[in-house]
Design a binder for these strands. Structure first.
Lengths: 240, 240
DNA sequence: CTCAACACGTGATCC
DNA sequence: TGGATCACGTGTTGA
C-alpha cells in the first residue's frame, strides 16, 4: 500500500524533473522503489512476478528514453510518437546515406574515359600523394637526399648585360633531381625572368635568366653551389 | 468474455504467422476486435477506456513493429531489444554520416581550380584511399590547401605517333608551383623522354614527351589531373 | 467531463 | 520450475 504511494510520488518527482508540464508518466520511475520484502508467504509468486514486470517496464522506458535522446526533432514526448519519429529519422538517414553514396559513386565513375578500367590506380597514381605522410615529410624525403644526390656536371653563370645573369647547368638525371633543382632555385629567392628545364637521355639541362647585376654573378654561382651541396649532404642526421 | 477469447485466438494466429515459435505476444492483434456495443449503461466509461487503451497499445506495437522493420540486424524480437538495436543503429548511421560528410567537404574544397572544373572526377581517388583518416585531419587538410594550389590553365595531351605522347600544360606561376609540378610528374613514374619547363611573366609552361601508346593518352591526362588535384588538397602539416 | 497517456498488477505463455 | 515476456483491464492524472 504505502509502496504504491511512494512509487507514485517518486514517479512524479522524476517526471517533473525530466519534463515540466508535459505528460504525467514517463519518468524513469521505480529506480529505487520496489522494495518488496518478499516476506509474505502467500503472494510469493505474484510479488516476484510483480517486481519482474516492473523491471521490464522500467527497462523498456529507459530504452525509449535513450531513443528519444538519440533522435533529434522529437515532436511529442509520446511513446508512440517517439518511435514514430525514430522511424522517420532512420529512414531519413538511410536515404541520405544512399544519396551520398551515390554521389561518391558518381564521382568515382565520373571517369567515363574508357581505358582506365583495366588500370589499377593503386600503384600508378599517387604513390607520393596518397601516402599518409604529410607534406613536410615529403619535403623531408627529397631533402634528406642520401637517396640520389644531385650530380652536378657543369655550372656556368654569365652576365649577359641589361641586368641579366644567365645560369646554365647540367646534371645527370636521377630520381627527383628535377624537383630538387627547382627547390634550390625557389629557396634562393631570385628575381627569375624565365627558367627552363629540359631533360633528355639521362642528362638534365636547366637554364635560368635572372635579373641581377654583374657584380652579383660570382655570389650567385656560390649560392647555387652551396645550396646544392647543402641539399646533397643530409641535413638531418637521423638517417638510419 | 467471448471477446477476450476471440482476441486471444486472433492474437495467437497473427503471432504464429509473424514469427513461428518465438514469443507469445507481439501480434498486431485486435485489428478487428473490440466491437463493444457500448450499449451497456454501467460499464460505459470503462469499456470506452478499455478500447481506447487497446488502440493505444496496438498503435505502439505497430510502431515498434515498423521500427523493427526499418532497423537491420535485429538480434532479438524483444520490445526492449528492438529499441536498443534501433538506438545503436541510429548512432552508427550518425557517425557514418559525419565521416562521409567530412570527406565530401574535403573533396569539394579541394578543387577551387579553374579549368578542370568540368572534370569533377579529380577527387575520387584520394577519398577512398585515405578514408580512414581522422575527421580533424580532414578538416585541417581542406583548410590548409590555401597554401598555393596549382592553378591549371590548360592541359593538352596528344599522341604524336611513334609511341610518344606529348603533354603540354600551362599554369600560373606561384610559389612552389614548379616544384609541385615536378613532384607530380615524378610521382607518376612515367617513361619521360624529355621534359621542359619554362616560366615567364607569371605563367609557367611545361612540356613533357612521354613514351606511351595512343590508348594511354586519356588515362595519362586523367592521371595528371588527379595528381594535381590531390596535390592541391595537400595532407599538409598544421597550418593555422 | 471527456480524452489521451500512463503505470500498475495480473494471468497467460513459452523456454 | 522458474524466469522472461507479453496483453489486458483498471485507476489515475493533466489538459
Amino acid at each position: 500500500m504505502e509502496n504504491i504511494d511512494q512509487e507514485y510520488k517518486h514517479y512524479w518527482e522524476t517526471n517533473m524533473f525530466l519534463q515540466t508540464q508535459e505528460l504525467d508518466s514517463w519518468g524513469l520511475d521505480e529506480a529505487f522503489s520496489g522494495y518488496y520484502d518478499s516476506s509474505s508467504p502467500d503472494g510469493a509468486a505474484s510479488s516476484k512476478n510483480i517486481v519482474s514486470e516492473r523491471n521490464r517496464r522500467k527497462k523498456l522506458n529507459e530504452r525509449l528514453f535513450a531513443l528519444r535522446a538519440v533522435v533529434p526533432n522529437i515532436s511529442k514526448m509520446d511513446k508512440a510518437s517517439i518511435v514514430k519519429d525514430a522511424i522517420e529519422y532512420i529512414e531519413h538517414l538511410q536515404e541520405q546515406e544512399k544519396n551520398i553514396e551515390a554521389e561518391i559513386m558518381e564521382l568515382e565513375s565520373g571517369i567515363p574515359n574508357s581505358i582506365n578500367q583495366n588500370f589499377d590506380f593503386d600503384q600508378e597514381l599517387p604513390v607520393l600523394l596518397r601516402s599518409k605522410k604529410k607534406r613536410t615529410d615529403q619535403l623531408y624525403d627529397s631533402i634528406s637526399s642520401t637517396n640520389s644526390p644531385i650530380e652536378l656536371l657543369e655550372l656556368r653563370v654569365t652576365y649577359m648585360g641589361e641586368n641579366t645573369v644567365v645560369v646554365s647547368m647540367t646534371c645527370s638525371k636521377r630520381t627527383d633531381t628535377m624537383v630538387k633543382l627547382c627547390e634550390v632555385f625557389e629557396s634562393l629567392n631570385l628575381k627569375i625572368i624565365t627558367a627552363n628545364i629540359t631533360c633528355f637521355s639521362g642528362t638534365l639541362l636547366k637554364t635560368v635568366f635572372i635579373q641581377a647585376n654583374e657584380e652579383d654573378k660570382d655570389l650567385l654561382q656560390l649560392q647555387i653551389q652551396t645550396a646544392i651541396a647543402a641539399l646533397n649532404d643530409p641535413p638531418s642526421p637521423m638517417s638510419i
